[in-house]
C-alpha cells in the first residue's frame, strides 16, 4: 500500500510536468492546428538562461521569473519569425516548420555554448524529506503538485474569465468566426504563444529544480512525452491535456514499479510496454480521450 501511494505521488509529479507542457501544445493546436515540436525547446531556453545567470551569481529566489520570462519571449519569437508565415498551411507543413526550429535550437546551443551538459546549483531544499503516515515525501513532490495546481487554476481563470482567454477559446472553436466578431488574429495567436510559453516556463522551473543542468537536446525527451499526452487527451482539449499528462505519468511509474512483479524479466521492457499501451490506445480512440469535434461541412 505504501509502495502504491508513493508510486502514485511520483507519477503525479512527473505527470503534472507533462500536463503543463501538454496544455501548451494543446493550446497552440487549438488556435492554429500546429503540433508544436519546438515547444520542448522552451525548456532548453530556460535551462541555458539559468546557467547563464548562475555563472553571474544567480539565485533560485528570482530564477523562476527569469526562466518563465525567457520561455514566454522565446515562444512569442518563434511565432513571429516562423509560424506566422505558414499560418494557413497544411498541418504537415506547420509540423515540419516546428521540427526545423527544434533542429535549429539544438544547433544554436551547441555552437553558442557547448554540446556538453552544463550543470548549475539546485535549490537546497529540493530533496529534503518528510514523513506523512509512514510514507516519505520529498519537498519537491509537494512543490510540484502545488505549483501545478496553482498554474492550472490560473489557466482556468484566464480562459474562463478574461477577454483574452475567451477570444482564444473562440478562435480555437472557429477562427474565421472569431475574426468576424472582432477578435484580432495576430494578437490572439501571439497571446496564445505567450501563454504556452508561460506554461512551459513553469514546467521548466520544476524540471530544473530537480535536475539543474542544461544540454542542447534536453527539451526533446520531454517534448515527445508531452505531445503524446496532448494527443492522448485529445488535441485542442484543455482538460484532456491535463488528464493525458497525468495518465501518462502514472502509466510510466506504475509499469516501472509493478511490471517486474507481474512478469519477472520484463522490467527492462517497461518503457516498451508503456508505448505499446499508447499505440493500442490510439488504435482504439484515434481522437483521444476528449474528442474535439471539428465538424467538417461537406
Amino acid at each position: 500500500m505504501t509502495k502504491l501511494l508513493q508510486t502514485i505521488v511520483d507519477g503525479l509529479g512527473v505527470g503534472s510536468t507533462y500536463a503543463l507542457l501538454a496544455l501548451g501544445i494543446s493550446l497552440i493546436f487549438g488556435v492554429m492546428h500546429l503540433v508544436n515540436f519546438a515547444h520542448g525547446e522552451l525548456i532548453t531556453v530556460g535551462a541555458y538562461v539559468s546557467y547563464f545567470f548562475f555563472l553571474h551569481g544567480g539565485s533560485w529566489w528570482w530564477m523562476p521569473v527569469a526562466i518563465i520570462g525567457s520561455a514566454m519571449l522565446a515562444s512569442v519569437a518563434t511565432e513571429l519569425v516562423a509560424f506566422r508565415w505558414v499560418r494557413n498551411a497544411s498541418p504537415f507543413t506547420l509540423l515540419l516548420t516546428s521540427f526545423a526550429l527544434e533542429r535549429l535550437s539544438h544547433a544554436l546551443w551547441q555552437i553558442l555554448v557547448s554540446p556538453k551538459q552544463r550543470a548549475f546549483p539546485k535549490p537546497s531544499w529540493v530533496f529534503y524529506q518528510f514523513k506523512l503516515g509512514g510514507i516519505s515525501f520529498e519537498w519537491m513532490d509537494i512543490v510540484t503538485i502545488l505549483v501545478t495546481a496553482a498554474t492550472l487554476l490560473l489557466t482556468a481563470l484566464v480562459f474562463k474569465r478574461t477577454m483574452f482567454g475567451i477570444s482564444v477559446r473562440g478562435a480555437a472553436e472557429d477562427f474565421d468566426a472569431a475574426r468576424l466578431m472582432g477578435v484580432r488574429a495576430n494578437r490572439v495567436i501571439s497571446g496564445a504563444f505567450a501563454f504556452a510559453g508561460l506554461l512551459a516556463g513553469v514546467a521548466a522551473c520544476l524540471i530544473l529544480m530537480r535536475s539543474p543542468s542544461a544540454d542542447p537536446s534536453m527539451g526533446s525527451d520531454w517534448l515527445m512525452k508531452a505531445v503524446i499526452a496532448a494527443v492522448v487527451g485529445g488535441l485542442g482539449s484543455f482538460s484532456g491535456a491535463v488528464i493525458g499528462g497525468l495518465v501518462l505519468g502514472l502509466l510510466e511509474t506504475l509499469t516501472r514499479a509493478y511490471l517486474p512483479e507481474v512478469a519477472t524479466g520484463w522490467d527492462k521492457f517497461s518503457t516498451a510496454v508503456t508505448f505499446v499501451v499508447i499505440a493500442a490506445f490510439f488504435v482504439a480512440r484515434p481522437d483521444g480521450i476528449f474528442k474535439v469535434s471539428h465538424a467538417e461541412r461537406v
Binding site: 508565415w85 505558414v86 498551411a89 507543413t93 526545423a100 533542429r103 551547441q110
Partner: peptide
Amino acid sequence: LDIERFPDLFLGGTMLLVML
C-alpha cells in the same frame, strides 16, 4: 564531440526556408 552541430544548423535552416 560536436561534429553534428553544423549539419544540424544546415538541416534546420534548409527545412525552415523550404517550409516558409
